[in-house]
């Protein structure tokens, strides 16, 4: 039986969540946390900005994909009209 790739993704994210919980239970700050806490938490702001810009970029990527599909459809219907 073929397991959907989304289920894999879900399980993987659960695993990640679990590992981060374990590290916080041990009361050891991780390297990532240390990085974010330095120089007045400025890297939190930088990461926010990166999240927003990447989000808009991914959105534009999907719009581009949709437009490409539409272009293909127009091309096909044009070819159909010229053949008959």
């Amino acid at each position: 039986m073929k397991i959907n790739k989304y289920i894999y993704f879900f399980l993987y994210s659960l695993l990640l969540l679990h590992t981060t919980n374990v590290s916080s239970m041990n009361n050891h700050t991780s390297v990532v946390d240390d990085f974010f806490y330095q120089s007045g938490k400025i890297y939190v702001v930088i990461t926010m900005l990166v999240i927003i810009l990447l989000g808009c970029l991914i959105f534009m990527f999907f719009l581009d994909k949709k437009i490409r599909q539409l272009e293909k459809k127009i091309q096909q219907s044009y070819e159909k009209k010229t053949h008959h």
């Binding site: 120089s39 007045g40 938490k41 400025i42 939190v44 702001v45 926010m48 900005l49 927003i52």
Partner: peptide, 10 residues
């Protein structure tokens, strides 16, 4: 808050 007050702009 520290520098994260700049989150106000984003």
């Amino acid at each position: 808050l520290g520098q994260t007050i700049r989150g106000l702009y984003f």
